[in-house]
């Protein structure tokens, strides 16, 4: 204690005028600028100069590129709807469950959230391929003669991507549900509303911000997926990221690849910017983000 007391006169100095705290953020800030931001900016420049801004006219070059764009948007929409249909009831049960069930359901969502995307996608190939687990079981049960085509198509991509993106739907919806005043639904019911109406008129509207946040996040993340469509899809339903990789690493058209990447980046940022005006994206990062 006496040691501490000796420094007493310095006690007020924690509020120094020009923030010393700002200096602490500098090394990490500079690191991200050099090793993360500069690559993106240089890629943007490259899309305009290697050889010219005409790189962006790639979409006019062949209908294939527009088709890939459409496949990407369509797949992302399907995945968003699937995640919503599964994620909303899941979050609802999590919200209303007792502490133990809730903890178990949370872990079931979070463990896949943190386990390797490549491993999970690989696991789906083991389940879905022609000689895979699902087809083997169905054949052994005598339900099918020919294996069902479960991957190398939109179905496989949808299954794999929905599995990986579900936490991004469940967590924001659940976060919003937790903020709903728990007395509101019983109040509506005590005033004579049947449970169904109390849900539809009171609970559901209040949970919609979470629904919007979840849908926005799932859709935007889905647009940029690479590993899962590459393993579970086929060249016929390739997604935008696969096109970018193909352009850069197989066709070596770096300028065009940069232009495609900038397009994807721009779409992502614009959607998030529009979305963040309406919803709390902080919720979207679920348990990781602060209130």
């Amino acid at each position: 204690m006496s040691q501490v007391a000796r420094q007493g006169r310095r006690a007020g100095s924690i509020r120094s005028p020009l923030d010393a705290w700002a200096l602490l953020a500098m090394p990490g800030f500079l690191f991200l600028v050099v090793f993360f931001l500069v690559p993106l900016v240089r890629m943007g420049l490259r899309s305009l100069t290697d050889p010219s801004p005409a790189n962006y006219r790639i979409f006019l070059e062949s209908p294939i590129y527009l088709r890939v764009l459409w496949t990407t948007i369509r797949t992302s929409l399907i995945v968003t709807v699937v995640c919503l249909l599964i994620g909303y009831p899941y979050a609802y049960v999590m919200h209303h469950a007792g502490p133990k069930t809730r903890a178990a359901l949370t872990v079931l969502v979070l463990v896949p959230f943190w386990s390797s995307l490549l491993v999970r996608t690989y696991a789906w190939t083991v389940l879905l391929q022609d000689s895979g687990v699902i087809n083997s079981v169905l054949r052994d049960l005598g339900l099918i003669d020919e294996p069902l085509q479960l991957m190398r198509n939109t179905l496989g991509v949808t299954i794999g991507m929905s599995h990986i993106l579900l936490p991004f739907m469940v967590l924001p919806i659940w976060a919003t549900m937790r903020r709903i005043d728990p007395d509101l639904v019983p109040a509506a019911e005590s005033l004579g509303a049947p449970p169904r109406a109390a849900f539809r008129k009171v609970f559901l509207p209040l949970s919609l911000p979470g629904v919007f946040a979840g849908c926005l996040l799932v859709f935007v993340l889905a647009l940029g997926f690479y590993i899962t469509p590459a393993l579970l899809g086929s060249p016929q339903n390739a997604m935008f990221s696969e096109l970018i990789v193909n352009m850069v690493s197989e066709r070596l058209r770096f300028g065009v690849g940069s232009a495609l990447a900038m397009t994807l980046l721009a779409v992502t940022l614009v959607l998030l910017a529009i979305g963040s005006r309406f919803v709390r994206l902080g919720d979207a990062l679920g348990g990781m983000e602060s209130r």
């Binding site: 020009l18 923030d19 705290w21 700002a22 602490l24 953020a25 990490g28 800030f29 991200l32 600028v33 090793f35 993360f36 931001l37 690559p39 993106l40 240089r42 890629m43 490259r46 935007v220 647009l223 940029g224 690479y226 990221s241 970018i244 990789v245 850069v248 770096f254 690849g257 940069s258 990447a261 900038m262 994807l264 980046l265 992502t268 940022l269 998030l272 990062l285």
Partner: peptide
Amino acid sequence: GRYPGRPVVMAIVLSPLIVPVVVIAIGMYF
């Protein structure tokens, strides 16, 4: 800290979570 530009710092910190990974990969590769 209490200084102007904090939102910018925060945005840059979070951007690796938001920018599509293929875009990051290509940019870093070059």
